[in-house]
Design a binder for these strands. Structure first.
Lengths: 198, 198
DNA sequence: GTCTATATAACGATAGAC
DNA sequence: GTCTATCGTTATATAGAC
């Protein structure tokens, strides 16, 4: 299906150049399809980008919802939450640059549907945290700080490892992401939770 | 001085729209200066952007260097390192969106001078970490993970608080940044270091 | 559903008057 | 040092043939 073909390649193109840097001219040439064909399948550039965002966020919330319904304790649920996040980036590494740019735009390009998905994700993380045996000094922190820790650290580390400004370790994506995922999980649990609590 | 006037406003414009989204036409109208005047003071758009990056990174490395030469123990030095980072964003909040987009670009727009500054910063952080009484399980982590934690979490949290997609707390910049700075500091020291070590 | 051809606007950048 | 005027290019988007 042509529409799917366009979408798949648009994910890479937006990840590489960003929304403003994305050119329909160059993109159509690169994927060897006429520009008008793209406009037949997608209303405009903005619509194509929104579909890309939707495609990248698919099934993420489902996994977390399944996790919430499980019998695990809160420590395991937080581990699972981070693992699901890492897995989503393994599946679609384009989430990293696209997500970082969205963060940089202070959510100006986020529509209502997306805002609601974000709110739901934040509520689920909030629930997990509420079940943790938090040390007293960490009780003032909520889901926002933890979310910023997880997504900020994982994306930044992945981008650093892919960056030309740092010595490239040339490790595979999966290895890099598992590594930083473990760091975030260990760091969070060791810092925030009472020893061997729960 | 006109050149400084242009630069000051360019910082805001690039922070708002990104490099590709920055229009010399609109920018010149906004600051009520002729477009040709801008091109008299700056060779081209790329040069203006590089000067913006340079302006935003001024004096940051100096503070860290001063910190390194002090008599503090490594815990205090790490606290100081994070505080200096937070202060640099307080002084120039535009670092957040611009920095996030640079990270998203995997360092493709970073020239050699900048790459060397980054490398030096990383070495200094490495030295601080080497002096910490790390728990055995954290000895495998280096400056890259810690750097990603600090800069990723602070920037992401600040952007989230400024974002329309989240409930805005309407706190002032300084308050937001001190808050997340404390979180990062506490979290890092509590997780990584042996209790009351050193 | 995919193409050719084109409309219209904005882009970055510069020549030259003052 | 700042302006007017304009160049050449590229951008997003569409009308209409097939």
């Amino acid at each position: 299906m042509t529409k799917h073909y366009i979408l798949q390649h648009a994910v890479d193109e937006f990840a590489h150049f960003g929304y403003e840097g994305f050119s329909t001219n160059k993109f159509s040439q690169k994927i060897e399809l006429n520009k008008a064909t793209i406009y037949y399948h997608f209303k405009d550039k903005k619509n194509l980008y929104q579909e890309v965002l939707l495609y990248l966020s698919e099934n993420n919330t489902d996994g977390v919802t399944r996790l919430m319904g499980s019998e695990m304790n809160s420590r395991r649920k937080l581990e699972g939450y981070i693992r699901l996040y890492v897995q989503s980036i393994k599946k679609h590494p384009q989430i990293v640059p696209i997500g970082l740019r969205e963060t940089a735009n202070y959510g100006s390009g986020i529509d209502d549907i997306f805002a609601r998905e974000i709110a739901r994700d934040m509520e689920q993380l909030e629930t997990i945290i509420a079940g943790l045996p938090l040390k007293a000094k960490y009780k003032k922190y909520k889901a926002h700080e933890i979310k910023a820790f997880i997504s900020g650290t994982v994306k930044t580390y992945y981008a650093m490892q892919r960056s030309s400004a740092f010595q490239k370790s040339q490790r595979a994506d999966g290895e890099i992401l598992d590594h930083i995922g473990s760091f975030v999980t260990d760091c969070l649990l060791d810092a925030l939770c009472e020893d061997k609590g729960e």
